[in-house]
């Protein structure tokens, strides 16, 4: 009998795709990572307000998603998850950025004015973030976590950081399980009681989780030392570039160049 959490985890596509994919036929994760980085950089350098310039990049992201046979609706819905975060940061732009005012009014004692440049800036950031996330979703849905980590390490990302990410992935499920066990134990004995008691027990739970994780890290460190660890992360290199990787890289480079030229000729 699976718990609610286990069912949710099984349905979550990132977890599934990171565990169940067979990577023999996929592109080398390094190539995918560099491709996505290139798209992101090109999207970021676009000047604000040129709305049509985003069309080629949207088409590229769409092509990648369709060719990987990803569930379209799921991907789009997931990509919208970034909107609240971006809005929180950019919501102030229309009100505080200088520019031609398109609306001005008095609310209670505050004088509010909305500028066109502000709105343009906000929408620009929003659409850039959304397109970048679409590309990143393609990357994460078609690559195993371990493949991605090895790609980072082979591309000379700091080895210590790769180890941290790897440990994070390994232990996040352990910590989630532990949290659920503690929560169930807490629920068993949380009958009524004031709000203060409830919050305090929640605080204790979080604190205990932190302490347990810290002590677990000491045990893991002892286990690593017991197997000869001396501070230098050592890994196995399994990634090999194949012909299909070169073909993709070349083709993708051409597509990006074409998109860039199209943009600068027609849309900007």
């Amino acid at each position: 009998m699976a718990t609610d959490w286990e069912e949710a985890v099984e349905k979550d596509s990132v977890y599934q795709s990171s565990e169940k994919r067979r990577p023999e036929n996929d592109l080398d994760p390094r190539i995918k990572l560099l491709s996505v980085l290139s798209i992101i950089i090109l999207i970021l350098i676009l000047p604000p307000g040129r709305w049509l310039a985003y069309i080629p990049f949207f088409a590229i992201a769409l092509a990648l998603i369709i060719s990987a046979k990803l569930p379209f609706k799921k991907v789009i819905v997931r990509s919208f998850s970034i909107i609240p975060f971006v809005l929180v940061i950019t919501i102030f732009l229309p009100f505080f950025k200088d520019g031609s005012t398109i609306f001005s009014g008095q609310f209670w004692i505050f004088r509010i004015s909305v500028s066109q440049d502000g709105i343009v800036a906000m929408l620009t950031i929003l659409i850039k973030a959304w397109l970048c996330l679409l590309s990143l979703i393609w990357l994460t849905e078609t690559t195993t976590i371990t493949g991605l980590l090895e790609a980072l390490q082979r591309l000379h990302f700091p080895a210590v950081m790769v180890m941290i990410l790897s440990s994070m992935y390994r232990f996040i499920f352990v910590i989630i399980d532990e949290t659920w066990r503690m929560k169930h134990a807490r629920d068993c004995r949380l009958c009524g009681g004031s709000r203060l008691i409830q919050f305090r027990s929640l605080g204790n739970l979080i604190g205990t989780l932190f302490i347990r994780s810290y002590e677990r890290s000491e045990h893991v460190h002892a286990a690593m030392l017991s197997r000869g660890f001396d501070g230098t992360p050592r890994t196995i290199n399994t990634l090999r570039l194949r012909k299909s990787d070169f073909v993709f890289a070349t083709g993708f480079g051409l597509v990006l160049t074409f998109a860039l030229l199209m943009n600068y000729r027609f849309f900007i």
Binding site: I145, T146, L149, S166, S167, Y169, R170, F171, R216, H219, V220, A222, A223, M224, R227, G228, F229, D230, R234, T235, I236
Partner: peptide, 18 residues
Amino acid sequence: DQLFCPLVYDDVAFGPLN
């Protein structure tokens, strides 16, 4: 506490690699 790598292969290979 002893299995700290994302894959079983990585964990068993940790010792020989070191």
